[in-house]
Nucleic acid binder design. Structure first.
Lengths: 352, 352
DNA sequence: CTGTTAGCGCGTTCAA
DNA sequence: TTGAACGCGCTAACAG
């Protein structure tokens, strides 16, 4: 049943060669005469040898063939976001060529130390933070002192961390400028969820959020519309969260004529909230998002969300490249990817 | 910068004890006097020793602390499906306790052998197939001969594979019976995507599909409504695919009065197709799905898809338990989880 | 082109 | 309770 796996030594002995020669046959690195190689392969077949033990091989070469992909919070929530999935897909494509696998690790924000313990016992060549977390993370210190390269998609930040991101502030600024250009004077913001937030507050309170994407996107809007724009932190990252936050903003005494949500999923929720309140989009209220993910139930011909399109797959791929370079001993620079403002059908001049 | 990591030996020497003693301190297994233990820990701190090297530790113990999660096709498509994500989340929760990480591996259906090569070079304790694949998979043979335990969620099948699944046939049969009970005589099926399918064909052609979920769900319907029900294989697993398949069925000369889609996402597409054709659901056509995932843009008060609800998280958790048992040397039996038929607002008696 | 010699860093006997 | 020796399975130098 579970007989011990044959070893390279056994194969070598049966083939009448030395272990190192057999090793060369399987790794394909050194020059081996064809007859010898064939003898070794034949012996391997006889013994049902399936190649070098990855564990031993890893120990010897000092490479695990694994990068950890770290996700703040539950997998469930991260992968609910089509944008995160897209990034992961782009990352996978590049890592597959190294070749290196992706080890999924979720970090419970409630007890970040648990993640450290798990990480300490795991063989890793590098780590990729999928982002959406705070700028500071205790994992970083651990990884740095362990000498493990770190690539972050937006967060965390820090020395020793290669950062792949977009210019959140500029993109947000362009979006806000678009709405101002349409002569919207009453904006409203639905921010990505953070543990802190609750209730409507001036945008100013978000400018120093420990979450870089929240803070920078807020700054972009503040650059154009000032720091007093009413903002609400969404209670989650999904459509329902956007719906409830949108409902709050839109039911206010003097409701905004345009709402900027910090993600498309949240924007979709705002659209629903508007619908619930019998408000027409974009006639009664304009809505804009962030990410540029497909919203199949909304993006029909003639119906498309105004949003900042960021290249999820390119972001993943860039992170993969950074990992590759780091593993090659290079020191890749931070990457800032371009975004485009997509003018859809959900923004128009205010009717009042 | 990247100075060599301190070794256990170095720590032991500095503490004035032997390596094995130091080892006991970190593993916490053997009895060590408190003063010695403290000395060792102090030495570790001085040298910035962060615990045993996971690679070396793994080699010695013969455990990698990793299970591979195998996904047919691109990550992008798998994770687009909220159901798959839910399963993964349930799995993660259990594996976290072992503790074991999840290594994501995608298997390109176009060249399954590539996946074997990648697997052969990866240290693994067990594998979990996330399902949605054909019953036969060349990876299985490789894994079995390597002695690596396999848990499958529906597919692949085979000796040496622990299968965690639902009773697809019975669940489907119940669903079909519900529609027949409403006196629907003209059913239509939108099947999960398979490489083979194209165009409308009798249900009979699906009964022997190499994809177990497709075949069994088809059988369930055939049990009730016979093998001549018109069926179409969706060109993908997302909403668009369901929409195009639904459009085809509904534009036929004698369109069905009720459509069963083999997933909720496909059903959502069918709903859209009906909408496009100005058909009211459930007045003009009934629509049912499979999975029971939240469709936030559809599930409003008074609007809920009729579907088979299967417990995604329980399925993931059961798979995790099976992995745990297998790693403990036990031989867990196959698991069949219960489903429930949820009668929503998308099915009603036909009006013609 | 092939074989010999050294480890990679750690866990686990077993004897003291 | 501690320590010395051995080996997990493989690969990178070097020598021949």
């Amino acid at each position: 049943m579970s007989d011990p796996r044959p070893t390279l030594k056994a194969v070598a002995r049966r083939a009448g060669v030395s272990v190192s020669t057999a090793s060369l046959v399987f790794s394909g690195r050194g020059p081996v005469s064809k007859p010898t190689a064939d003898k070794v392969r034949a012996a391997a077949r006889d013994l049902h040898y399936l190649g070098p033990d990855p564990l031993a091989s890893s120990l010897r070469r000092g490479r695990a063939g694994v990068v950890a992909v770290i996700i703040e919070g539950r997998l469930l929530h991260a992968f609910h976001d089509p944008y995160a999935v897209r990034v992961l897909d782009g990352l996978a494509a590049v890592l597959d060529d190294i070749p290196t696998g992706m080890l999924l690790m979720s970090q419970d924000p409630a007890r970040p130390e648990h993640a450290i313990e798990r990480l300490a016992g795991t063989a890793l060549d590098a780590t990729v933070f999928l982002g959406c977390g705070p700028a500071a993370n205790p994992l970083v210190e651990h990884l740095v002192s362990r000498g493990i390269p770190i690539v972050a998609l937006g967060a965390p930040r820090g020395p020793g961390v290669v950062c792949v991101d977009i210019d959140n502030r500029a993109a947000s600024r362009d979006l806000a400028a678009h709405l101002r250009g349409l002569s919207h004077r009453h904006l409203g913001i639905v921010a990505l969820p953070t543990p802190a937030g609750a209730g409507v507050a001036p945008l100013r309170t978000l400018l120093d959020s420990p979450f870089p994407d929240v803070a920078e996107r807020a700054r972009g809007v503040a650059d154009v519309a000032g720091p007093d724009v009413p903002a609400i932190v969404a209670p989650g990252s999904d459509i329902e969260a956007g719906q409830s936050a949108g409902a709050t903003l839109l039911s206010a005494a003097d409701p905004p004529t345009a709402i900027i949500a910090q993600s498309d999923l949240l924007a979709a929720g705002v659209l629903r909230a508007a619908h619930d309140l019998r408000l027409r989009v974009p006639r009664d209220v304009s809505v804009a998002g962030f990410d540029g993910v497909p919203l199949p139930w909304w993006d029909e011909p003639g119906q498309q969300l105004t949003t900042v399109v960021q290249p999820g797959d390119a972001k993943g791929a860039a992170a993969g490249q950074a990992v590759r370079d780091l593993l090659d001993g290079e020191h890749p620079a931070d990457v800032t990817l371009p975004t485009t403002l997509r003018l859809g059908s959900t923004t128009a001049p205010p009717s009042r």
